[in-house]
Design a protein around this nucleic acid. Structure first.
Lengths: 208, 208
DNA sequence: TGGCCTACTGACCGGGCGGTCAGTGAACTG
DNA sequence: CAGTTCACTGACCGCCCGGTCAGTAGGCCA
């Protein structure tokens, strides 16, 4: 019957999906702790509770696992950010949305952020073509900010200034704030941190 | 005679020093291009025009070469920054000095900066105790800024605000600006970049 | 029950690289 | 010129790790 075959199919798919997720989660932890090179596939396998060979039934290579983890977190973060930012009306609220979303997402996904920032750093030394879409995702975030700032400027909410530079500035400040928390140089509540940061930015660009 | 022995001694020392510098320069280039793991000692040796074994006559391990390159650049940058900043009178000038010094130093030592930023990124994933003095050097830079801001605040040149947060903000903005140039996301003159950045910061913290 | 399928295993392979060390030859010495 | 020193060499070692694949075990069907 259709039902039974469908059911069986689904069962398999569910298992496959489960293993993918399981391995990815384990990989994220290991990569976050040791970095791409420091991590071994064997280690990831153990963390996932399977044998090394099993890993290769689900991912073709260590690199692919890494990229999968990176991409997953990155797209989720990007869409969440975009959603929140576009949900805000005023420029100030939009900037606040951007900063807060990042800081909160960080709180929930520290492992991802470790991988993310390490990769950002390595991008400077090793420019592989594989990284280009990763690079693009980063620039998209900046572009989002840039557009927001530009529109805010047109509405007279901000001084007239280089939207792109401001966008980079906000991105840099946010990135820095998250990094500081990650390494433990900053404590204090996220709300306070976000407020400080947004205030600072706002002083720098507001119209009044 | 004293003279002759001294002369010979000096000759040897000069050679030793020369080799050290030569190897370090070669290493910097290779590390900047490939990162720590991507670089091989063989490659560094070739770039330095010596055999691999020779490398180990001057440095005990690959890691040591790496740290030496990092430390050298870092201490030079730190002292130059400190000098320039302390040479400035007003808070605004001090901040400008900080930003401009970094940007100019970057222009002169791109290879160093690549290693530096990559290491900053990796610090998040691999916390070795070896890195702790590196970490300290970074925090010293922030502390320098913090002190400057705090004093400026006391003199009434800036609003009353969290000196530490502001210090981090300036450091982050500067770091970001340099990174952007490094990857090619920003062009334009350094002077312009510095001005934009300083203006932005100043708006954010000035007393008026 | 016997045969089959297949997800899973982990011993194994091959290559790359950090680090070593016996050997070389040029310069110096007496 | 013979002897000695020493900076330098590069073939070599051993380890690690990404990736493979013949084998296994357990579930399912006839």
């Amino acid at each position: 019957m259709n039902v039974s075959t469908e059911k069986r199919r689904t069962k398999r798919d569910v298992l496959t999906e489960f293993r993918h997720a399981e391995i990815l989660a384990a990989a994220r932890g290991v990569f976050a702790a040791k970095g791409f090179v420091g991590a071994s596939v064997e280690e990831i396998a153990q963390a996932a509770g399977v044998a090394k060979g099993t890993i290769y039934l689900y991912y073709p290579s260590k690199r692919e696992i890494y990229f999968a983890a990176l991409r997953e977190g990155l797209t989720a973060l990007a869409s969440e950010t975009q959603e929140k930012v576009e949900g805000a009306k005023t420029l100030l609220d939009q900037i606040r949305a951007y900063v807060e979303t990042k800081l909160h997402y960080f709180e929930r996904h520290q492992d991802f952020f470790k991988i993310y920032f390490a990769e950002l750093g390595n991008m400077v030394t090793q420019h592989e073509s594989r990284d280009s879409d990763f690079e693009q995702l980063y620039l998209d975030q900046v572009a989002l900010l840039e557009e927001v700032v530009r529109r805010g400027g047109r509405r007279g909410e901000a001084r007239n200034l280089e939207a792109r530079s401001v966008a980079f500035a906000i991105a840099n400040l946010t990135r820095g704030a998250v990094t500081q928390r990650l390494v433990g140089w900053t404590t204090g509540s996220i709300e306070r941190e976000a407020k400080l940061l947004v205030d600072f930015v706002w002083k720098g660009i507001s119209a009044t």
